[in-house]
Design a protein around this nucleic acid. Sequence first.
DNA 1: ACTCCAAACCGAACACTGTTAGGTTATAAG
DNA 2: CTTATAACCTAACAGTGTTCGGTTTGGAGT
Lengths: 215, 215
Amino acid sequence: MSDVGRPRTPVLSRARIHLTALRIVDADGLAGLSMRKLAADLGVRAPSLYGHVASKDELLHAVANDLMEAVDISGFGTGDWRVGLRTWARSYRAALGAHPNMVPFLAFGPARRAASLRVADAVHGGLVGAGWPPRYATMIGASTKYLVVGAAMGSFARGFDDDVQVYRDRYPNLLDAPSLREHADEIDADSFELALDAFLDGLSTLYRTVVGRTP
Amino acid sequence: MSDVGRPRTPVLSRARIHLTALRIVDADGLAGLSMRKLAADLGVRAPSLYGHVASKDELLHAVANDLMEAVDISGFGTGDWRVGLRTWARSYRAALGAHPNMVPFLAFGPARRAASLRVADAVHGGLVGAGWPPRYATMIGASTKYLVVGAAMGSFARGFDDDVQVYRDRYPNLLDAPSLREHADEIDADSFELALDAFLDGLSTLYRTVVGRTP
DNA sequence: ACTCCAAACCGAACACTGTTAGGTTATAAG
DNA sequence: CTTATAACCTAACAGTGTTCGGTTTGGAGT
């Protein structure tokens, strides 16, 4: 009558573990996820998890990979590289923004995440196919990723503290900083779109001089 | 003859603690910094640190603030907002790149870091002074930060794994990915400059339509 | 039907973490 | 010369990721 030993029907599964882990990270942050807490939420003890998952790190990578599946690279099929970049960047940012607490982890490069490699491949192929020299394709892919990751981190950080009022005297140009917090989401979204527009606009100019035709 | 009690001359100081902490983070990463290890490197036991530092978090914020002192905002004094943005972005990226392991921590917004607020104030003031409407100044500052933070995270992550070769068949467009690793620094630097150029170029166009004169 | 292996859980334990409480000693102030 | 306090210490707490070995069950092979 003890609760030791194999249960009649399996309690754990990789999918359920991933889902619960993500829910905890969303609710309590990356630091709020512990193997014991995760196990408790699953109605199990911590060591049992190691029959399904190699380590906490591997688990997080798997969850990260799940999230990256949502990134949309179909835009590169339109024949317009700017549409490809835009839809990629937007869906990428949306994927990160949906789980902001995962961003610090997701930012650690594609590494061996299959989903990220899939995207990197499509982006590079799309740009080269549109006429960009491979070297430029690499740099443009990197640049776009910078923008998205940076924006996601910024959103996550939510920047300015609650009592910025204290600094009013010393930083006169930040007088309206407190109001930023209220519209943080909107400002982040607008800033991202502005950056993307300006960036793509600048790239279009570059395209003409590098490739020698209009985009 | 015990090693308990107050020493003849003080062993610790805030400056020495900061310096040693940063050295550990540089060498062993953020996760490699523990209060016990830090204390050991300082020839002391962990609890002694708490006479000089409120918590590990506060310590890291202090170190982060030290790093942000190096960011250069003097470019906004030239009267050319593009020069201001460029020198800011470059020195910002350099400050982060000099201590890549600190980036994940530094990315958490200006918060109450005095040095970061100083910069934010100068940037906003410089842009508004150059004619940008406050709302645009906010977005441009945010966008630039996105780029810098994103680039710093990218550098930190170093992306592609050693044995990307494995994925050769599945990701045909990444055939030359392994070679990326060798020139990672160069590619990161070039990509950042490309992004900055394109971004500033796009902003110049925007400036003409928003402000109604050439930059 | 019976054996046997592997799957799936558990308890106990290890070495580690940040942090607090309270003890001990040296310096500086009155 | 007392007294306060600054600066270190030891001991301890609750928590972490992870491993080892135990217990029970399902299912495959004969």
